[in-house]
Write a protein that binds this DNA or RNA. Sequence first.
DNA 1: GAGTGGTCTAGACCACTGT
DNA 2: CAGTGGTCTAGACCACTCC
Lengths: 270, 270
Amino acid sequence: MTDRDWRPRYIQLAEELRQKIESGALRPDTPMPSEADLADSSGLSRTSVRNAIRQLREWGLVRAEQGRGTFIRAARKRVVRKNTDRYQWEKNRVHETEKERRSAGGTEFDTGLAVGNLRFYAEYRVIEAPEELAELFGISKGAKLLQRDYHTTAQAEEAPLGMSRSYIPHDIVAQNPALLDQANEPWPGGTQHQLFTVGIELDSITDHLTARPPLPHEAELLGIESGVSVIAIRKVSKDTAGRVVEIADAVYAGDRAEMVYEIMLERWNP
Amino acid sequence: MTDRDWRPRYIQLAEELRQKIESGALRPDTPMPSEADLADSSGLSRTSVRNAIRQLREWGLVRAEQGRGTFIRAARKRVVRKNTDRYQWEKNRVHETEKERRSAGGTEFDTGLAVGNLRFYAEYRVIEAPEELAELFGISKGAKLLQRDYHTTAQAEEAPLGMSRSYIPHDIVAQNPALLDQANEPWPGGTQHQLFTVGIELDSITDHLTARPPLPHEAELLGIESGVSVIAIRKVSKDTAGRVVEIADAVYAGDRAEMVYEIMLERWNP
DNA sequence: GAGTGGTCTAGACCACTGT
DNA sequence: CAGTGGTCTAGACCACTCC
């Protein structure tokens, strides 16, 4: 006598299907049996079958397309961002010629794609610093901040890999009026060069990473659905005087992005 | 005339409730109206109300407890792991006395808690290297690996913050038989000290971070539910000869962990 | 025992995709 | 057009919590 399975029927069904997917009996990018078929073969109502499928979606194993079917998800190819190298690479580029800086930006560094194959979006606003940011910048609440939203999409992809919102104290950027005009984006050399034009050299960048489900507008822009998480990164940049000069909140599709940090350790016997 | 809202009714209800939560009209750790009440007040069926609530759970805004109610989630206090400091700290400790090493481990470093307030779990197995790992280690497929599972729980918490599975080529650890016995865990000074006993000094540690929904066993162990993601980290450690000596896959609750990496940039004018 | 959320049914209509 | 998944209803019973 085997023990009776005390779990809900829809979970049992979800587990059965999970087995089939992980064993390869159901193959990536092929459709699962339809809800009606599963209801027939399992003896459950369509509602319970849908519960099972929702479970599979939450596990990130399948993707439903209205009118077409429910498909096994293939593991997505990831774009690897090695931030420990990227940030230094951006810094090194500040002193190169404009022609050189124009030739490639951060996204090209990550993806290896050429500049022409990218669609770039930028929008600037001036806002009043909320308490949380004011505290991090060491400025007073309500002081003016330049807020900039960015995202970049590879021509071949339908949705960007990530999106970011950057904040810089208005006092700092206002020293160079060109920095206040979003028409100048994409700025050759990026933020580190922009800061350089107002005399700022970065000393350190600190990334704070967390994971969470996407918010509705993030899911829409990044083209992700139930069953995909996002990597949220708060990036805090300090200049050589130890002052916080930029804070950026970036969000990346968890199934398409991989963030890499290499930590070099000091030697015992130098 | 306002446009008719073309979205599903349950999404509209979810959005209304989201507004109330984010505006503070519904406060953290207090219960929402019951499903029956919401069905009455909204004119929807209980099924649709449940769909709305599921949406809120997927957004991570509420938590349902059977028999008690559905509660607004308070933002959880995060444990911050600054890996750029932590790994060097662990390396520095290798040369300290055993008494000193015994006094604190990595979790204590992160949380500030004393050793006695932690429940520690470790389990060792010997496995054959699957292709993926063999390739990373530069050894042949099927070669023996020591696989070690760990998790540590703060006495005050019901669930661990994260869990990890470490792999080390068996050839390496077998040089010190004490390293093969899980009864020696928690080993004072951790993995870096264990490797030191077989003559290995680490040169670099590379973290690869992604985000995804938890697998069932992860959700259970970490005590997380629908609406919480995990941070998955593959940590690759190389010794001073450039050889990969340990690979660890760690998973952290996305709502309780924050991973921090500080990148120091080279100066333009040294 | 009253009230909560969790599971489950049997059915309906809709929006979308393919042929 | 038939077939798919998405929305929605009106019920039922269960497991759990709290009084």
